[in-house]
Amino acid sequence: MELSGLKRLKDGIKSKLSGLLSKLFKKKRNLKLGIYGPTNAGKTTLANRISMDFLGEEVGSVSSIPHETREVTMKENVTLKKGGKELTINLVDTPGIATKIDFEEFIKKGLDQETAKKRAKEATQGVIEAIKWLDKMDIVLAVMDARKNPYTQVNITILGNLEARKIPVILVANKIDLRSANVQRIKKMFPQYEVIGISARAGKNMDELYEKIFEVSK
């Protein structure tokens, strides 16, 4: 009895010590910065811009045909540097969230039927995957096309899910280099969020966005 009690005590101390040591020496994991939004809002263009600015390489290809990004893509160890500050993140580009995907729309864009059906199937999987990944995010950039009406169900669902999970979010009003862009409309529709107007394609106002990412990551 005494021996087994001693063993339990020894095991207990060993386990406590091991937990303490692993906590002390555990490498701090990188924050996952997710890029979310509806299709063709410019998510991959933004991911490419961030990755090019700090890593010198792109994350994925962009296209005017919706659902070009059909898989979650993660670029690890991207170190953002600004005014002496540094933040290493894992940058996660996600497929556009949509409530409908019709292969016939891809045919209208010039794809043959087989390719269109394959693209539609992959796109549905991409949406499911993007929603699943929400739980893994530490910060999210919710990207909206500043030319379009922001008060859509997809945008509301994305923001609602982030709020329910208590994930910090920055609203990114993209495409401000285009004439009909209206950042004020997004600010008016979502007054409770920080809204930064940028052009990922032209690299406009990216410094303000990086500043905000540093601020939110604290």
């Binding site: 969230i97 949509a98 409530t99 409908k100 995907i101 019709d102 292969f103 016939e104 059906k117 539609a120 549905t124 999987q125 949406v127 499911i128 929603i131 699943k132 929400l134 169900q153 509301i156 669902t157 609602g160 899910n161 709020e163 329910a164």
Partner: peptide
């Protein structure tokens, strides 16, 4: 609620085919 909306979108995606487009 937002979680139900998210799951509704996921379930929609699982059901999409030639006839049901979302």
């Amino acid at each position: 609620n937002p979680e139900e909306e998210g799951e509704l979108i996921s379930e929609t995606m699982r059901n999409i085919g030639d006839e049901f487009t979302g």
